[in-house]
């Protein structure tokens, strides 16, 4: 069930900062606190910032970071960009997908782990790279794939 009161409290807290152009920072703050931006939060956000619901929805749906459903317990973001590809990224993607039991861009059905694409983490000479629950991991090889898989099963 959606914690409307909790969301409102978080919005009220955020609004104390009186920020200009506050929509993205507010969405980040809500996602930080609740793991996602519930569609039920949209009217509250719109009201707080005096925007239309359409505007808020348009922004949420534009940016890939914002999710409208709770995330998996672990998120592995694997870089798919050129530099990582030049270092065997495609093969690592296939291995990781196989090890985790989830296709790129999806959450595993049990909600344990999601494998998401990211396009460059700025670690381009030491790829393939990933963020495992926001922790950077470089030079991923077969052994690291297994290690990552073990880590996110915990």
């Amino acid at each position: 069930m959606t914690d409307i009161a909790g969301i409102q409290t978080a919005i009220d807290r955020f609004m104390q900062s009186d920020m200009r152009g506050a929509l993205l920072p507010l969405l980040h703050a809500l996602q930080e606190e609740f793991g996602h931006v519930d569609p039920a939060a949209v009217p509250l956000i719109a009201d707080a910032l005096n925007l239309s619901r359409a505007e808020v929805h348009g922004v949420i749906s534009f940016y890939h970071d914002f999710r409208t459903e709770p995330p998996a317990r672990h998120v592995v973001k694997l870089c798919r960009a050129e530099s990582c590809q030049s270092r065997g990224g495609a093969a690592i993607e296939a291995q990781l997908s196989h090890q985790l039991g989830v296709a790129m861009g999806h959450s595993r059905k049990d909600g344990q782990v999601a494998l998401e694409p990211v396009y460059c983490l700025g670690l381009c000479a030491i790829g393939p790279n990933a963020l495992v629950d926001d922790r950077p991991v470089a030079r991923i090889d077969s052994a690291r794939v297994v290690a990552i898989a073990n880590e996110v099963e915990a």
């Binding site: 460059c120 700025g122 381009c124």
Partner: peptide, 12 residues
């Protein structure tokens, strides 16, 4: 917003 693959100078 240094998004180009192969770049990291801004980040550094």
């Amino acid at each position: 917003d240094e998004g180009d693959s192969g770049t990291f100078a801004d980040r550094m």
